[in-house]
Design a protein around this nucleic acid. Structure first.
Lengths: 327, 327
DNA sequence: ACGGAATGTGCACACGTGTTCAGTACGAGT
DNA sequence: ACTCGTACTGAACACGTGTGCACATTCCGT
């Protein structure tokens, strides 16, 4: 073997005694071709294992069905899950996701070597250069996790502020009065908005934020930060966390300190990640719905491809309170 | 815009007053081209945003640098992490991973529409058809998670049996005598081998397995199964779990039942997943090293591309005992 | 001054496909 | 019989690139 010889349409044509065009037509539905001939061609193709070369087809002017998914540096397990689902959805809709991860070399513009049908990127991984080049080349760009109206780019993101406000209001309604907030890295858009949600709810209730700490969206980070927060001077009876991982760390810290949950302390998170629903966790949280987000991204993408000149759109996904056992 | 006009080498050539060949050569290192001319070309290319079209280049006979990564139906969080790392590594080495996930339609053979440089697949997601077609087309196939010598396919997998045996021996050396085993789905190759490791260690120590249950590699599954196991008739002082997720579920079950860990019960897992090292967990486990696996897969791949006719190779990755706090 | 090596460049081909365009065969309508 | 429309087909082109080959130019040694 070794010779890596690709099976071409010409071979099928020779074998079937037809022209190469006929073979192409046999695979293109909506083309004129005598039914018996089409069946014979498809039969021979299956027999010798012929498949139209997607590269050549993509070159041929039309759509390539290739979509770059810029993963960037992933921190959050929830993000990894989202990407995985997104790729599945792309597959199911006949697209081929090319995953671009790791640290950016040229702001991820290397991926533009392919004639992409679209490019999907997380808000945090967008570079000016990438945006500029995509616009110039006319490649649709879909962003998730952050609004991008000002850049004239389609985007999908969860209503972070409203969601966290909902969760905080729940705790207020339970009679909690001394609130702490466990945030993520400063530059994270989502963490900033979620914090705002907490402050809004507290202001509406005439309460103040008693304590605050920032960590890195990880379980361990949450554990350490919560431990400090809970052993600090001011007493706290409610801890709102900017994501589920940190909330779970906080639960561990409370347990280590002998603080009863939810009797002495309410803890809520954000995302409704897998681990929030574990029986050993049962974290009260806010659902940041993956399926909806994925579906909306796909809708935007398909819609944009069919109608390249339409106005850009920003989809705000509705968060949802998930009542479990830690509030 | 809308016209999605790709910038071609010809445009750069016109602008620079050279032939199109010169432009191609400017981007191909190792080609003869006057240095000043090369610089001028690259300058103009950067200016108008030209990049060689990877599709056209791939079509041109040589390597396409495309690698299909068959993800299949992912169950395990650890698998998702592996795939993410794998894609990063492929990126870093100049390959473009096309992710194929979801349920197989034709045994994942649709991905062969691309002239792939290679195809990476998990042991569990291999179909006879896929193997056959790849062999016929001369596309290198790398498998991970299962040995595949009999199929003449390169593969990488962890020494499941030896690893679990190591962990069991650790518990034996601590004086544990009543062992339970928490396994995964029957058809999982890895679970089977890990169980064998437990039995080996016990046999060497003259001990019997006291109790056994099978679950689904998930935290919740582990929780439920462990609860049953721990409340059953036979008393148990050591619980060996086929992966970390189930072990963490088991830890939760023990806590719920008021069983002190590690005083009254030892628990060990397998994988050394992220969650095993959480401060709230500190699970004693066996490292199934991701980085090594990824690196070995990449080595096999590059080596195979450079030398298509070499003998197939099976790499057995050495597991490593990770001592933490639950044994 | 002259032959030959060394260096640099452009032409043309190949890669494998989808699709347009002109053209053939054939049946039906007048 | 003649025209017209219909069903079908093959030749040819375009997509954008890398590279073999032949040719042009420069340089050097004698």
């Amino acid at each position: 073997m070794a010779k890596r010889k690709r099976i071409t349409a010409q071979m099928v044509a020779d074998r079937a005694g037809v022209s190469r065009s006929a073979v192409s037509r046999a695979f293109t539905k909506g083309s004129y071709l005598e039914e018996s001939k089409r069946r014979r061609i498809l039969g021979i193709a299956a027999e010798i294992g012929y498949q139209p070369n997607a590269l050549a087809a993509g070159l041929q002017g039309g759509r390539s069905r290739l979509v770059a998914v810029i993963e960037g540096d992933i921190r959050n397990a929830h993000d990894t899950t989202l990407i995985s689902r997104l790729c599945s959805a792309l597959n199911a809709n006949g697209f081929w996701p090319i995953l671009v991860s790791g640290t950016p070399i040229n702001g991820y513009t290397e991926a533009l070597a392919f004639p992409l049908d679209a490019l999907i990127v997380r808000g945090g991984s967008m570079s000016k250069d990438l945006v500029h080049r995509c616009a110039k080349l006319g490649i649709p760009m879909i962003c998730y996790g952050r609004p991008t109206e000002e850049l004239n780019i389609d985007s999908v993101h969860c209503k972070n502020q409203a969601g966290m406000q909902l969760a905080t209001e729940l705790l207020v309604s339970k009679g909690r009065q001394k609130f702490g907030f466990l945030g993520g890295p400063d530059q994270f858009y989502s963490s900033m908005k979620r914090r705002k949600g907490v402050l809004n709810a507290l202001e509406n209730a005439g309460l103040d934020l008693q304590a605050e700490a920032a960590s890195d969206f990880s379980v361990d980070g949450g554990f350490t930060a919560a431990k400090t927060l809970l052993t600090g001077n001011g007493h706290i009876d409610a801890l709102v966390c900017a994501n589920d991982a940190m909330a779970i760390g906080a639960l561990g810290a409370a347990r280590a300190l002998g603080i009863a949950i939810p009797d002495a302390l309410s803890v809520v998170g954000f995302d409704d990640a897998d681990m929030a629903d574990w029986q050993i966790t049962k974290l009260t949280t806010v659902r940041n719905p993956l399926e909806t987000t994925v579906q909306e991204v796909l809708n935007l993408l398909v819609d944009r491809i069919n109608n390249p000149d339409r106005e850009c759109r920003t989809i705000r996904v509705e968060p949802q309170l998930v009542i479990r056992g830690t509030h």
